[in-house]
Amino acid sequence: MQLFKKTKKLELKMDEFLDTVSEAGIIFQEGIKHYLNNKTDRFENQIKKIRQFENRADNLRRVIEQQLYTETLIPESRGDVLALLETTDNVINQAKETLLEFSVEKPQVPQVFHEEVLHLTDHVVHAVDEMTKAIRAFFKDPKAVRNYTHKVYHYESEADRASEHLKRAIFSSEKLTLAEKIHLRYFALHIDTIADRAEDVADRLGIYTIKRSI
């Protein structure tokens, strides 16, 4: 019975970890909106929140990893689960880093690009959301993983397209200096990288799911 209690606790921690990652995506989106709308206090508040979420995710990841090792749980798939946790953690780290860069570097984003930045952010957050659904499916219903990973790939390529579109618009603008263009380009790249990180997780999930089914 002790064994069931332990695994139940671990399941809850894993759910909490994924909730944290998923919520961090929403906080990131809100943060970008507040930044573009010049609501500095609210934007800084989102940064505070995403830092807390990133810390919480780190702590949960460590606790889960330690428990998996000290109690020798799931010996066959332990390595896969640990790698999955690490790569998922990269997603939330990237979201936090990107918001922090907005706070530190304060890029000037002309009104004309707002819609495209929000569009890009929207695709990125969708990719993260589908990624967390895919991870949940990996633990409970491996056959359903593909239903979610293909959506991750879809949103990731949409994010790539939106990012490219944004960069083209930035560099074809006649009102911006080259320095401003390069500065803005990096922010398009940073936001898009979050979707790339989600894609990394989906790639791993694809292999781990096949391994689980053998």
Binding site: L3, K6, T7, F138, K140
Partner: peptide, 17 residues
């Protein structure tokens, strides 16, 4: 397994027992 949708961690306990 495919119908019951047992969590990987719980499946571990069931398998051990």
């Amino acid at each position: 397994f495919s119908v019951a949708r047992i969590h990987l961690f719980r499946l571990d306990s069931y398998t051990r027992i």
